[in-house]
């Protein structure tokens, strides 16, 4: 990871942490209970985005073929 990348990541994590703090001060209207806990969206977002990337990467390892297709 480049230096700029690391800086951006640091800034983003900071903003995320700040918003999680803010999140614990607002009233929630949960539909299923857990989704009303403070910071739920943050960790759920991190986990699901990570899963999406890893699954897509894995699928790409299996199914991605180099080179363009004949009539694309």
């Amino acid at each position: 990871m480049t230096v700029t990348g690391r800086k951006i990541l640091f800034a983003l994590v900071a903003v995320l942490a700040l918003l999680v703090v803010v999140d614990s001060f607002v009233t929630h209207h949960p539909s299923f209970g857990i989704d009303g806990t403070p910071g739920f969206a943050a960790w759920f977002g991190l986990v699901s985005a990570a899963i999406a990337v890893v699954v897509a990467y894995g699928w790409g390892l299996l199914m991605r073929r180099p080179g363009e297709r004949a009539d694309d």
Partner: peptide
């Protein structure tokens, strides 16, 4: 929170 979490992952798993 969702959007920023996704952005973190985008940079982290770039």
């Amino acid at each position: 929170l969702m959007l920023i979490a996704a952005s973190c992952i985008f940079i982290g798993l770039f």
